[in-house]
Simulated assay, not measured.
Amino acid sequence: MSMFLPPFEGRLSRRQYWIGNLILIGFGLLAAGILIVAFIVSGGVLAEERSTGEKQLSMALVIAILIPWSALVVKRTKDLDFPLWTVAICLGAVVLDLLMDLAGVRYLSGLSGWFAAILFVLNVVWSVGVLGFVRGTAGPNRHGPDPLVPA
């Protein structure tokens, strides 16, 4: 569980990163399912345009997942010995995507929608392709011991 929590110290292997992401995805799907059922039971109708309450609940769910996901990204980036400004770009893209969603910007509609879509794709490529598949620095680095070497 320490992989999800601040302080953002230490390194994560690819396996730990994937396990952490699968746990967060499972939690997110379960929470989203509960929110959808609760909304339907309360008499709401799932519509094309979401109400302010739906947007606020969605935002709360994303923020609840964003903190542990940030810990995964930071620790995995440290394992790769990449500069931490790469994490700022990754998390900044997620925050920008959330703000654009709150503002009602749709993907692929207008310049801002295309911008959001491109940022989303680049973030997925980084989070999955680089953090998920590139082997970390062999041996210890400035962020700690190799997570693949038994202590």
Score class of each variant (00 low, 15 high):
residue 99 L to S: 08
residue 34 I to W: 09
residue 82 F to T: 03
residue 22 L to N: 02
residue 127 S to F: 03
residue 114 W to D: 01
residue 73 V to A: 14
residue 41 V to K: 08
residue 36 I to V: 14
residue 64 A to G: 14
residue 99 L to A: 14
residue 132 G to M: 10
residue 17 Y to V: 00
residue 122 L to Q: 03
residue 72 L to V: 05
residue 79 D to M: 04
residue 2 S to V: 07
residue 116 A to K: 05
residue 37 V to Y: 14
residue 12 L to Q: 07
residue 125 V to S: 03
residue 54 E to K: 07
residue 94 V to F: 05
residue 80 L to C: 08
residue 101 D to I: 04
residue 3 M to V: 10
residue 128 V to M: 09
residue 5 L to T: 12
residue 59 M to R: 10
residue 6 P to W: 03
residue 130 V to H: 08
residue 89 I to W: 08
residue 31 A to D: 00
residue 83 P to V: 03
residue 117 A to Y: 04
residue 34 I to L: 14
residue 54 E to G: 14
residue 112 S to N: 04
residue 78 K to S: 04
residue 13 S to E: 05
residue 60 A to G: 15
residue 8 F to I: 02
residue 72 L to T: 03
residue 112 S to L: 15
residue 73 V to D: 01
residue 61 L to A: 05
residue 83 P to F: 06
residue 31 A to S: 01
residue 43 G to C: 07
residue 3 M to K: 01
residue 84 L to K: 12
residue 116 A to R: 00
residue 143 H to Y: 15
residue 28 G to L: 07
residue 10 G to A: 13
residue 99 L to V: 15
residue 37 V to E: 15
residue 115 F to K: 02
residue 12 L to M: 06
residue 18 W to I: 00
residue 137 T to Q: 11
residue 102 L to S: 15
residue 32 A to L: 12
residue 138 A to H: 10
residue 72 L to F: 09
residue 10 G to T: 07
residue 65 I to F: 03
residue 26 G to I: 05
residue 131 L to D: 01
residue 127 S to E: 06
residue 52 T to R: 07
residue 61 L to W: 03
residue 42 S to T: 09
residue 105 V to F: 03
residue 67 I to V: 15
residue 50 R to F: 13
residue 43 G to E: 09
residue 35 L to N: 12
residue 105 V to Y: 02
residue 134 V to Y: 11
residue 103 A to R: 04
residue 54 E to N: 12
residue 139 G to I: 13
residue 25 I to Q: 01
residue 100 M to I: 02
residue 109 S to H: 13
residue 143 H to V: 06
residue 51 S to G: 12
residue 15 R to W: 03
residue 33 G to P: 06
residue 65 I to K: 02
residue 91 L to Y: 01
residue 58 S to L: 11
residue 59 M to V: 14
residue 143 H to T: 08
residue 69 W to A: 12
residue 45 V to P: 00
residue 3 M to I: 14
